[in-house]
């Protein structure tokens, strides 16, 4: 399954909830959730710890818009909107953690 998160992990527990609940699969960070995948943020440790169970992707245009494209944590894949579409197509279901 593809899990889509759009909120910063420092202001909303959506990502943490997803990591604690989902059995694995793909996670795509979009909008304000891209902050989760930047080095030095307080959630970085939890994201890194989840990388064994999940494949983490980050939406590059959202990262660029926020001035953080040079700070992506190692192990997270960068995708554009076409890559976003491919992730949705490749997974049988997707869940937006709103």
């Amino acid at each position: 399954m593809l899990h889509i998160i759009n909120r910063s992990p420092l202001s909303d527990i959506a990502l943490e909830s997803c990591l604690n609940t989902a059995t694995g699969g793909d996670i795509l960070l979009i909008e304000d959730a891209v902050y989760a995948a930047t080095s030095g943020n307080a959630f970085e440790g939890k994201l890194r710890a989840a990388m064994g169970r999940f494949k983490i992707s980050v939406l590059r245009p959202d990262l660029e818009a926020r001035g953080l494209s040079d700070r992506v944590v190692e192990g997270a894949a960068l995708v554009d909107y076409a890559g976003f579409v491919e992730l949705v197509a490749a997974n049988k279901t997707c869940q937006s953690w709103l």
Binding site: M1, N20, T21, A22, T23, K92, T93, C94, Q95, L98
Partner: peptide, 16 residues
């Protein structure tokens, strides 16, 4: 949480 995650995996459509 683990049971919930497994239940999510069984679905065709998830709306939140």
């Amino acid at each position: 949480r683990a049971e919930m995650g497994a239940l999510m995996d069984e679905q065709d459509v998830i709306l939140s």
